[in-house]
Design a protein around this nucleic acid. Structure first.
Length: 206
DNA sequence: CGTCCAGGTCTAC
DNA sequence: GGTAGACCTGGACGC
C-alpha cells in the first residue's frame, strides 16, 4: 500500500538540488494507497465537492456495508440506489459509484490494470480515469498520485490557496503552478504535494 | 431561516 | 476549447 517497491531515486536526485525539497531525500513521499484501485477511485469520488465530514460519512457507510472491510465491486453493484441515497447520503454520487462498480464487476472496466508496470502510460491511465463518471481533473490526479504516477498536480480548493499562501503569491493559476514544478517532470505532482505539506513532517531535529 | 460552499464534475451552450 | 449553472449533502454563518 506504500508502494515501497517504487524507486523514488530519480525524484530525490532532483530534490537534492532544491532547497525547498531537500528535506524529502531521507525517504519522504510515500503515499498510503488502498489495497485496490477500485477502492481508491470510490473513496476519491467521496472527497469531491463536499466537506471532509461528508467523506467520512460516505466511506464509513461503505465499510459498514462491507461488514468492516471495504466492499468489493459486486457488492456495490448489487446495492440498491436507495442505500446510496438514504444510508450513505452520497447524493448525486450514488449513481456514479454504482455505475463504476457495475462496469468493474462485469469486466468492462479493469481498474487494477491502471497500476504501474502494467504497460499503460500516464496519459492512457488519465484517459481511463477521466472517462469515469464523477472523476475529473482533480480526482484523476489524486488517484494517479496514489498509484505512484506522480506527473500531475492535485489541484483543489485546499492545494490552490495553500500554494499561494506558502509562496506569498496573490494570484497563481493552475498553469503557473504546473509551470513552477515542470522541471520535476514525471514527479511534478509529488514535488508539488511535498512542498505543500512540509510542515506536517517537521520534527525537532528537522 | 436563507445563503454559501467544502479536498468538483457534468452538461449545455 | 472555454465557461456558466446545476447538482446531493450538511455545517457554518449572517440576519
Amino acid at each position: 500500500m506504500f508502494r515501497l517497491g517504487d524507486d523514488l531515486a530519480p525524484f530525490y536526485a532532483l530534490a537534492a538540488g532544491d532547497p525547498l525539497l531537500r528535506w524529502t531525500v531521507c525517504g519522504a513521499g510515500r503515499m498510503l494507497a488502498s489495497p485496490s484501485v477500485f477502492e481508491d477511485v470510490v473513496k476519491t469520488i467521496c472527497t469531491t465537492n463536499c466537506a471532509w465530514s461528508g467523506t467520512v460519512r460516505m466511506v464509513s457507510a461503505l465499510v459498514e456495508l462491507g461488514g468492516g472491510a471495504f466492499p468489493d465491486a459486486s457488492t456495490l453493484s448489487a446495492t440498491p440506489d436507495s442505500w446510496y441515497r438514504d444510508v450513505a447520503r452520497a447524493g448525486y454520487r450514488g449513481p456514479y459509484l454504482r455505475a463504476i462498480a457495475r462496469n468493474v464487476e462485469d469486466g468492462a472496466l479493469d481498474l487494477e490494470a491502471l497500476l504501474p508496470g502494467r504497460d499503460l502510460d500516464d496519459d492512457a491511465v488519465a484517459e481511463v480515469l477521466l472517462a469515469l463518471p464523477g472523476i475529473g481533473p482533480y480526482a484523476a490526479a489524486h488517484v494517479m498520485q496514489l498509484l505512484g504516477r506522480h506527473g500531475r498536480l492535485v489541484l483543489d480548493s485546499w492545494t490552490r490557496p495553500r500554494y499561494r499562501r506558502l509562496t506569498k503569491k496573490k494570484r497563481a493559476n493552475d498553469a503557473s503552478m504546473a509551470r513552477a514544478f515542470k522541471h520535476y517532470g514525471a514527479y511534478a505532482g509529488l514535488a508539488f504535494w511535498l512542498f505543500l505539506v512540509k510542515d506536517w513532517t517537521e520534527s525537532d531535529d528537522d
